[in-house]
């Protein structure tokens, strides 16, 4: 399953919920969700812990817009809008953690 997160970890506990629930599959961080994948952020350790079982992606245009493209957490894969579409197509189901 593809899990999509679009809010910061402080704004909403959506990322933590997704990380706890997700049993394999992928997490895609978009919009304000991308801040979770920045070095030094309090959520970094939780994200890294999940990397063994989940593949973590972040949307490049949203990283650039927020000025954080150059401080991406190691192990997170950056995708563009085309990669976003591919992820949706590749996964059987898709959940936006609103």
């Amino acid at each position: 399953m593809l899990n999509i997160i679009n809010k910061t970890p402080w704004d909403r506990p959506a990322l933590d919920a997704a990380l706890q629930c997700a049993d394999g599959g992928s997490i895609l961080l978009i919009e304000d969700g991308v801040y979770a994948a920045t070095r030094g952020s309090a959520s970094e350790a939780r994200l890294k812990d999940a990397m063994g079982r989940l593949k973590i992606y972040a949307l490049g245009p949203d990283l650039e817009a927020r000025g954080v493209a150059d401080r991406l957490t190691e192990g997170v894969t950056v995708v563009g809008y085309d990669g976003f579409v591919d992820l949706v197509a590749e996964n059987k189901t898709c959940q936006s953690w609103l």
Partner: peptide, 17 residues
């Protein structure tokens, strides 16, 4: 304060969004 500090982050480039 809180996520508001992100407003001032240097190097924002919103062209692609």
């Amino acid at each position: 304060t809180d996520d508001g500090v992100y407003q001032l982050k240097k190097g924002q480039n919103t062209k692609a969004i």
